[in-house]
Design a protein around this nucleic acid. Structure first.
Length: 468
RNA sequence: GUCCCCAUCGUCUAGCACGGUCCAGGACGCCGGCCUCUCACGCCGGUGACGGGGGUUCAAAUCCCCCUGGGGACGCCA
């Protein structure tokens, strides 16, 4: 059996967005699950709109997601001679021709067709003029005038288009650069691509490419057009729907495994399973059979839930460096990994994103003096009655033999009993004093992690605030 | 406008290729409850869909047709 070779061909005219990332993921998964190869190729034939910055950003996003490539990245801009070779061949064989019609003239032809209620297209004026090379001339493909062009699609089944719907599309622009349709076919042939998984929006391009494959006497790869991802308004995903670049999700604190997990489940399923812990698990379970045919809506709520599940399942060790980065990004002290690894388990159940985790971590990583108190909170919870209890606790805590959560908890129950009060009355005041916030991880874990000195200092600071 | 594709809860989906086991299952969300030192987590329960109409059949979410709805393409962009 032939090895499977898939590819991902982004155009460096924009960021790697959600849709592109999913296409990349599917192709990568297919290659990996079949023991094949995955090729990365930059489609930068539109020199004007392509940029190095975008190329870098796309590569960065691919690396972040963990989608490694076996070949490339190839750059179409470096392969122009190769495309020219094929164009010459088509010219020689009378399957392509020079056309001197200006863009304005072609637009007029389309306008006329539209007026007649027909499909807007080039009318083939130069088709039989036998023009040679010349300035401002493009090269067009000589499409068949009748019959139909059909191909098999693993998702859509048999797709057929009447050739009268097709026109003589441009192969080479007036500036002598090749167009997309020609370049993809040449590249996919050269790179021996066996499977092409791409967005639904390419479905109507495919017949043109099929025609080129036939003109070149080449065998067709397997096509699979996956449905597009849309925004909540069922419109094409755009800036309105939130982040465009997948790197933006990294910035917001999404984990790459969670990103791949959610993306994979958009248009693909494996029974009732929602959480796939790693790329490896996805590879193991991926199959073309389970791809769905209809468009889907990107749901940030579910994405966020998936992320929270991955955060809960991750090891503190793996999360520590990431949390460190987020602390830094939030102008908080980065803290040492050993401390973070102790802190993280307290935060894992509460954070949906790493950014949120950094927020939760703030009271723990900030020095005792840097902790800021909301005067309203202090006033509300630390009443004079409560302050008296807190003072008594201060003394006790200073002398407490051990400062771990069990000892603290048993001390607390003794204290409450002695004073004849309930924990409910003390919990929030202590929490506010220790963290400056009315929401935090469990009190005893918090105290244990903060340590005796910090706890005493913070209690003291809070008490002073009430006196003032 | 023309052509192509698609159609199960608000959303992601299972089921559809081999029609009965589906008065349709899971997940997110939402609502209610439990747990509880706060916020979360977790647990339990609830809400909620086969777009419509015709066929075929003893029987249709599953097969066929039409309609409707949605999406995509119609570039010297990819």
């Amino acid at each position: 059996m032939q090895t499977v070779v898939t590819r991902f061909p982004p155009s460096p005219t924009g960021y790697l967005h959600i849709g592109g990332a999913r296409t990349a993921l599917f192709n990568w998964l297919l290659a990996r699950s079949m023991g094949g190869r995955f090729v990365l190729r930059m489609e930068d034939t539109d020199v004007e709109r392509s940029s190095n910055e975008m190329t870098e950003s796309i590569l960065e996003a691919m690396r972040w997601l963990g989608l490694d490539w076996d070949e490339g990245p190839y750059y179409q801009s470096q392969r122009f001679a190769r495309y020219q070779h094929f164009i010459d061949e088509l010219l020689d064989r009378g399957m392509a021709y020079y056309c001197s019609c200006t863009p304005e003239e072609v637009e007029q032809m389309r306008e006329e067709a539209r007026k007649k209620g027909e499909k807007p297209k080039y009318n083939g004026r130069c088709r039989e003029r036998d023009l040679g090379p010349g300035p401002e001339r493009v090269i067009r493909f000589k499409s068949p005038l009748e019959g139909e062009t059909a191909f098999q699609d693993i998702l859509k089944g048999n797709v057929a288009v009447d050739n009268r719907e097709l026109d003589d599309f441009v192969l080479r622009r007036a500036d002598e650069t090749p167009t997309y349709n020609l370049a993809v076919v040449v590249d996919d042939l050269d790179m021996q691509i066996t499977h092409i998984l791409r967005g639904d929006d390419h479905l109507s391009n495919t017949p043109k490419q099929v025609l080129l494959y036939r003109a070149l006497d080449a065998e067709l790869p397997v096509f699979g057009h996956v449905p597009m991802i849309m925004g909540s308004d069922k419109k094409r995903l755009s800036k309105r729907h939130g982040a465009m670049s997948v790197l933006e999700y990294r910035r917001q604190g999404y984990l790459p495994e969670a990103m791949c997990n959610y993306l994979a489940r958009l248009g693909w399923s494996y029974g009732d399973q929602e959480i796939f812990s790693s790329l490896d698990e996805l590879v193991e379970k991926f199959s073309l059979q389970n791809l769905s045919k209809s468009a889907c809506v990107f749901d940030p709520d579910k994405q966020s839930w998936v992320n929270s599940q991955h955060i809960k399942a991750a090891t503190p060790q793996s999360l520590a460096p990431i949390l460190g980065d987020f602390l830094e990004a939030n102008d908080l002290p980065r803290s040492e990994p050993p401390f973070l690894e102790q802190l993280i388990p307290l935060l894992q159940p509460r954070a949906k994103t790493m950014q949120e985790m950094a927020q939760w971590a703030a009271p723990f990583v900030r020095g005792d003096d840097e902790l800021s108190y909301d005067s309203g909170l202090v006033e509300k919870f630390i009443t004079s009655e409560v302050a008296a209890y807190l003072q008594r606790m201060q003394t006790d805590l200073r002398d407490l033999q051990r400062f771990d959560r069990e000892s603290l908890e048993s001390y607390m129950s003794r204290f409450l009993e002695q004073q004849g009060i309930r924990f409910k009355h003390m919990a929030q005041p202590i929490r506010v004093a220790l963290t400056g916030s009315k929401a935090s991880p469990g009190l005893f874990e918090t105290m244990e992690l903060l340590g005796r000195e910090s706890v005493l200092t913070r209690l003291e600071r809070a008490l002073q605030l009430t006196e003032a």
